[in-house]
Amino acid sequence: MIDKKSILIINQSAPYGSSKARESLDVALTCSIFEMPVSLLFIGDGLYQLINNQSPDALNMKKHEAMLSALPMYDIEKIYITEEDLESIGLTENDLAMPVTLIQRDAIASLIQQNDSVLTF
């Protein structure tokens, strides 16, 4: 049994304006297929990815929210945001597309420490 490296993906980019958000989830899904434990942290502008009721039909783009909702099907369930970031954009958990784990901002350091690799998008 090979030990699989755990990976933390830090998402700092808003969806739709660039392809970073989608690329990040592509990496997350691929890591899951190789059975690597994946954690996702959405901070700063990355938090905008999680807002619910997205309908990008007029942009001719795929719905980011749909891809996010596939994460549990790929057994990716460790999804973190900070309470401070959520408060700073004036939204609550009810405005989010999926259940997340709320952490305090000062817990970011231990998330980085706990994982073998860190990627940022």
């Binding site: 901070i43 000062d106 980085i112």
Partner: peptide
């Protein structure tokens, strides 16, 4: 500011 705050909170 918030980017710096996040980074500072990520420091060990």
């Amino acid at each position: 500011k918030s980017l710096y705050l996040n980074m500072l909170n990520g420091l060990s």
